[in-house]
Amino acid sequence: MPSLPRLPISYLIFIAMSSPIAINLLLPALPSIAKQLSVDISLVQLSYSLYLCSLAIGQLLVGGIVNHFGYRKTMLIGLVSFTLGSAVGGGFGSLEALLMGRIMQGLGGAITMSLARALLVDGAGKDKASQQMGYIIMAIAISQSIAPLIGSLINSSLGWQIIFVFSLMQGAILLLLTLKFIPQQTQPKQRPSFQENLTLYGQLLKNRDFRTYAIANTLVAICFYVFVSSSPYIADTFAGGIHAYGYWFISISMAFMVGGYLSTLINKRLALDKTILIGNVISISGALLLLLGQLLLDSSYATLFLPMCLVTFGRGISQPSNQTSAIASIASQSSMAAGLMGFLQLLSGAIFSQLTPLIVSTFPLLVYVLIFTCMSLAMWVHLGHWRNTGKAI
């Protein structure tokens, strides 16, 4: 497949933001939807979990779709699914349409998230992409922070169905921008079959570089998923009540965003592995402080969130380099690498998110042990690979 021209970073950022915004816009409206549709909240909650499942499955499939159709057609397929899903989810006012729309949004969002990273690496090259990947990470962090607020305002003033109009407009604009920026590509006469795509995924998993950076990236992400899924239950008994939770959570997003910005500066001066090491050292320090704080101090919002800000700040520094290194490990299959990495991260996050509430109710301290252990393993995996490749540390 011919190489792509370097695409505007603003376009790639807008593409990367579409799915994080869509998944979080609806969260504040879930209780209202349950009341209006006269259904149990657990059924409406499926609109979130089905989106995550679609996102994971879609990212696993996106590489094979790119190999068959090319970047331009694959992106258009994803955006059409995302846009139609937005119309279906909010246009019929029923639970069935809501869930079907969220599945379509998730599948389309998987393509946009994966291809935003793959197009950056393919167009800019590994070194320049590592400097700009931080901007995408920052954009995702901002999206996750502001989307619930936007969704809440729309729901309170116009109703939950209008939330989908926001996503529909976003998808329509991205369709027009994609037609403008991504050129037509000559497709190979022999397109990989389903079996051949499975073989390509196997080759990715056998590649030591991809395996190392994807595993390290997933382990650091698990720390975040464990925290997010446990902190509402832990904070429920804190002074200030659960109402203060949202304000404290903004600090996590801000720390991630600042780390992402610093990664763009650090990568201009240091090699990717050194940037990852800096991020990992900061994150493991935060994880240790988080564990010690729960052992030695009274639990509070400060002892819970401040050390986790350090963990997330370090993740913001290391994640762009981890993702760039994983995607660039097999240059000819960057879209498959991005999709497989996203699938591993989301699947692991879903599993641990489902288990964490049970851990909180039985042995809460294990939450902090788990965060410290995953962060330690991430650092160990990366350092072991770095030494084995013979690079100076």
Rank of each mutant, 00 (worst) to 15 (best):
A124G: 10
K189F: 11
F305A: 00
L277T: 09
S376F: 14
S167N: 12
L383Y: 09
I154C: 04
Q161M: 12
S10Q: 11
I242T: 14
I327S: 06
A392E: 15
Y247T: 13
L306F: 12
A214F: 03
Q132Y: 13
I182T: 04
Y368R: 01
G89P: 12
S54Q: 04
H243F: 09
G70A: 10
G109D: 02
G64Q: 04
L61E: 03
P183H: 10
A287V: 07
S325L: 10
S348V: 05
K206F: 08
M379D: 01
I21G: 00
R6L: 10
I140S: 04
T312R: 05
Q333D: 11
L95R: 08
S334T: 15
L84M: 13
A139R: 01
N322Y: 13
C223P: 09
V62W: 00
P20A: 03
Q36R: 14
H382K: 07
L176D: 06
F164P: 01
L153D: 00
L25S: 03
A110F: 05
Q354H: 15
G259Y: 07
Y245N: 05
Q345L: 15
L27G: 02
A124I: 10
F305Q: 01
Q161D: 13
L107H: 03
Y201K: 04
I163A: 08
Y301N: 02
F238G: 07
Q319E: 13
I103S: 02
F210C: 07
L25C: 06
S353R: 08
Q105V: 01
G349P: 05
F181I: 10
S94Y: 06
L55K: 03
I21T: 05
F352Y: 11
L292S: 04
L52G: 08
I13Q: 06
G260F: 03
G260L: 02
